[in-house]
């Protein structure tokens, strides 16, 4: 490792540094991915811009329209423990945050870092996709918002320009009163796992019991976190009975483009994708039945 370290104390200063060093610079949030990638030689930035002294980048707050704004530097631990995710419609995010590494990593690792790192196996990303998250970016041209599924372009690649800072993740309000989400993960161990497959789902039901909106997203089965629109389409407008859920799960498995690697074969990943997708959707329904919905 060898780099110059910068510690701007304002967003403007951070942007100026980014503009000056361009692709030679990387932003440092918690560093739990970045430092390992630098040490493994996968990244070799000449400049590291530590964002921890920039005010206002951490914290979770409600938005006027009833959504949530999660500062990019909010730690995974803060998400895990925040009441906004303790139950109800956004529970999937806490469930995902809670299974990233050990407490050591979650006390430092940030949601923004997780998003910018854009690992196809990242646990928080399917949950964020299920919750219709948007990335909020600030750059020389001002602030812009990008839906997360458009933001994630490939392994380690996002729509963020080198001179932009990811400042927050925004979650819109759930579209119906009956909404629940769930996150599930499969790995070789019960903790400290990079997911072999992970899945997040959200279901919103109308007063007639029909599905107003469905979201299903999978991790570690494609070059990016995969939102399975085909499965969502099978559910939306219908009563999500067992047959519909099974069809959606099958569609999820069919949509995967997994790899064979040291953690699992493509065939097993596809199998797990179907299993976890079905279970995540069923968990959403179960939670609504338990009166847990938002």
């Amino acid at each position: 490792m060898s780099f110059a370290l910068h510690r701007p104390t304002s967003l403007a200063a951070a942007l100026a540094l980014a503009a000056r060093h361009g692709a030679a610079a990387r932003f440092l949030a918690g560093g739990t991915d970045l430092v390992i990638q630098i040490r493994r030689g996968r990244l070799a930035p000449a400049h590291v811009i530590d964002l921890s002294a920039v005010p206002g980048l951490a914290g979770i707050a409600g938005t006027p329209e009833g959504g949530l704004r999660i500062g990019a530097l909010t730690t995974l631990k803060a998400i895990e423990r925040h009441p906004a995710f303790a139950g109800g419609a956004r529970r999937a995010l806490a469930e995902a945050a809670r299974v990233v590494g050990g407490h050591q990593v979650r006390n430092v690792g940030t949601l923004g870092g997780n998003v910018v790192n854009a690992s196809p196996a990242a646990d928080t990303l399917p949950a964020l996709l299920a919750l219709d998250a948007e990335a909020e970016l600030v750059g020389p041209g001002g602030t812009r918002r990008v839906p997360l599924d458009a933001f994630l372009l490939g392994p380690g690649r996002t729509d963020r320009a080198p001179e932009e800072v990811l400042t927050a993740i925004r979650l819109p309000p759930p579209p119906s009163a009956a909404s629940a989400s769930a996150f599930l993960k499969a790995g070789r161990r019960k903790a400290m796992e990079i997911s072999v497959v992970c899945a997040a789902a959200r279901l919103d039901l109308g007063a007639d019991g029909r599905c107003v909106a469905a979201r299903l997203a999978l991790g570690a089965v494609a070059p990016t976190t995969l939102r399975v629109r085909a499965a969502e389409a099978l559910l939306e407008g219908h009563v999500p009975d067992a047959g519909r859920l099974a069809a959606a799960a099958a569609a999820a498995a069919a949509a995967t483009r997994p790899l064979d690697d040291v953690r699992a074969s493509a065939r097993f990943r596809r199998h797990l994708a179907g299993v976890l997708a079905g279970r995540a959707l069923a968990a959403c329904l179960g939670r609504m039945g338990n009166g847990e919905a938002a």
């Binding site: 070789r188 161990r189 019960k190 903790a191 400290m192 690697d261 040291v262």
Partner: peptide, 16 residues
Amino acid sequence: VLNANLTDYKMPTAQD
């Protein structure tokens, strides 16, 4: 060796 690190060499944790 494909897994020359403790990310992919999987020893049991306290939860396993």
